[in-house]
């Protein structure tokens, strides 16, 4: 995974609330067995509207996206994160995110930044001017050329994974002994829990 320390770039001022993962990537794009190329289907319905914000040349090459409350709600499809990544988005800023989406985002090197609504409103204003916004994960700040400076919090483990571009599966596999110990005590105390499909 590509490490993420600092992202400076234009931001798409989407602004909408409750942007669900069906909006980010509709179901017909889920019929792939690969993670690549989903950017083409990102926000498909929105982009069908003339003058939509996603294809606005003012925000061409954007690496940030700014949205309203509850971004990424709905279906658990990780394709939403893959699609955003394929579009070149590295940071999404919103007042809140769905739990599943923010987890998926981090696992794909995309930083979800939670800021209060008034900060998001201000960043939307700045983004609409087409000027660059800077997100620094080390200092946990979002800054603009107009001296705006907002700090955000992030789960320390997620921060570490993003900064280091770490592979969570590999990290957990290294804990195999602890997992084995847990399994052994369960097999002794509650063997039926460990039978799964073999019970049939």
């Amino acid at each position: 995974m590509q490490p993420l320390t600092r992202v400076e770039g234009r931001a798409i001022p989407l602004g909408l609330k409750n942007v669900d993962t069906d909006i980010i990537i509709p179901a017909k794009w889920l019929k792939t067995i690969s993670r690549e190329g989903l950017g083409a289907g990102a926000f498909e319905a929105l982009r069908a509207e003339p003058g939509n914000v996603i294809d606005d040349p003012d925000y061409a090459g954007a690496t940030l996206l700014i949205a309203g409350d509850n971004f990424g709600c709905g279906s658990s499809r990780e394709h939403a994160a893959w699609a955003l990544g394929d579009m070149g988005i590295r940071v999404v800023i919103a007042p809140s995110f769905s739990d599943i989406f923010s987890g998926n985002a981090v696992k794909n090197g995309i930083l979800p930044v939670v800021l209060p609504q008034d900060a998001v409103d201000r960043l939307l204003e700045v983004a609409r001017e087409g000027v660059a916004i800077t997100v620094d994960l080390e200092s946990q700040t979002v800054t603009t050329p107009y001296q705006d400076r907002f700090t955000f919090t992030i789960d320390p483990f997620r921060r570490e994974c993003l900064l280091g571009g770490l592979d969570e599966v590999g990290l957990t596999m290294a804990r195999g002994e602890a997992i084995g110990g847990f399994e052994a005590s369960r097999t002794a105390a509650q063997p039926w829990l460990m039978r799964g499909t073999e019970a049939a």
Partner: peptide
Amino acid sequence: GIGTSEVEH
């Protein structure tokens, strides 16, 4: 519900 990376995990 979980995402695909978590399925792998």
